[in-house]
Computed example of a mutant assay.
Amino acid sequence: MNSEFTIAIHSLALLAYRPDHMATSDMIAHNVCTHPARVRKVMAMLRKNGYVAAKEGTGGGFILKCDPEQVTLAEMYRLTSMGSVKPGWCSGDAEQDCMIACNMATVMDQLYAGAEKQMIDYFGQWTIRDVLEQVRREQEKKPGV
């Protein structure tokens, strides 16, 4: 999994928290604690896929264009990180004359695919609204709140 997944969820939760306000990439980046260029990359992806709308220029920024109760974390995983469970290199070589070496890559591919399916199923149980509600519960636990 990559950081774009976290940035996407954080950004959507932030926009869902204030659905009637625009947020610039600088504002979002400050809240996410990352560079605005990274936020812009993720927000462009979210915009392209219809999750946010953008207005350029003075007074511009991003605004939520989706229903936080309908957007699952599984959608965000598929959009930002699909296939990231599998490493770029896998042991084994189909050309070798060894039962282990010539079959390991296929077996590992199956294991990674199964793990990713389990993760997508789990993330499918959570929505952006659920994340926002969990954040609110965490805030309520803090003294003086």
Rank of each mutant, 00 (worst) to 15 (best):
A8V: 06
L79Q: 11
P143H: 02
P68E: 03
E56S: 12
K142E: 03
L12K: 08
V32R: 00
Q96A: 11
R18G: 08
D67Q: 10
F5C: 02
V32H: 00
P68N: 05
Y77N: 07
A8R: 05
V85Q: 04
K65N: 14
P87I: 14
P36A: 10
V39H: 14
T6A: 11
M119G: 01
Q70D: 01
M104S: 13
S3L: 03
M119V: 13
I7F: 09
A44V: 06
W126H: 12
A94Y: 02
S84A: 00
Y77T: 04
C98H: 14
E4N: 14
A13H: 05
C66R: 02
E133L: 06
V52R: 01
M43F: 00
C90R: 15
G59A: 05
E116F: 07
Q134A: 09
Y77H: 13
D20Q: 15
Q139W: 09
H21S: 12
Q70S: 10
R129N: 15
I120E: 13
R40G: 04
P68W: 04
A37K: 15
P36G: 12
N103K: 13
N103A: 11
M99V: 15
K41Q: 13
H10Y: 10
V71G: 02
K55T: 11
V85N: 09
A13F: 05
P36F: 06
I63Y: 11
L15Y: 04
P143C: 00
R40Y: 01
A53Q: 05
Q134L: 05
D130G: 04
R47G: 08
A101C: 13
P87S: 12
M22T: 09
R129E: 13
L132M: 11
S81R: 07
A94K: 14
I100R: 13
